[in-house]
Amino acid sequence: MPSATLLGQSVLSGIFTGGLYALLGLGLSLSWRFLNVINLAHFGFIFIGAYLTYQLAGVMGLSPLVVIALILPGLFLLGVGLQWLFARFDVDEFASLLVTFGVVAIVEAMIQWYWTADFRKLETHYGTASLKLGPFYVPVIEAAMLAVAVALCLAGWAVLSFTYVGKALRASAEDPAIASAFGVRHRRLSLLLGGLSAASAGVAGAFVALMATLAPAQIYAWIGVVFAAVIMGGLGSPLGILGAGLLIGVSEAVTMALTAPSWAPLVSFTLLILILVLRPDRA
């Protein structure tokens, strides 16, 4: 049997990983539910954010916080632009999957053209720093990332639950015609949501740059598990994706601590299948 420290440390590691899944999938979940866009380009936006963070913080020496403030407006506009194109050409849900897959490929090629295919690592003095809490170590960057993920998911939930914008988005997703009759301007809202989703990808990208070594092909590294978290959490549910992300992350980590780590990737999809069987309304 593993020691309590090993198990506890692994659970902690799983919580951080789960937080990352939630952060990566938040925008994807919202745009899928409220805009009917299965936006694979979200992963491209994440890596645009990551490489810009690498460039501005690593090469030019700016603070990552300043970098986030700089890249968010750009990614917001990118998201607005993409959503405008979807609306302009009336792209349906399935077509959006294909179109945005193409966008990811273009983003990957552009990143490789500018930064080459070689690995890029944003080195910071706090990159591998940890706080010691009793027998456990809490990595500083991961803890900050988890705090941001929780904050964004809570904010998303609050906006959707308690504000006019949130209610209007939900009404539009339920019945656009009736919502429109009540004065909801779906087009404007969809542009806003497209922009915010892309901006959330920028935040996720900044943390990816701080936590991981970058290579263009790694755009695809998280797609499978993040999709699983999005579906498990329920489309358009910020708290749902946070819970699903944490569940997957912790389950994977405990699997790695107790059994062969090579079994861990099976966990997310086994959980997904179980939930789809038991709760088919989530599909």
Binding site: A212, E252, A257, P261
Partner: peptide, 20 residues
């Protein structure tokens, strides 16, 4: 002795086992 899948991203639990 541990085996992990190629492409794994989360090495936290593996590191904990190595440390242990």
């Amino acid at each position: 002795y541990l085996e992990f899948e190629f492409g794994s991203r989360d090495f936290g639990p593996i590191a904990a086992r190595v440390k242990d």
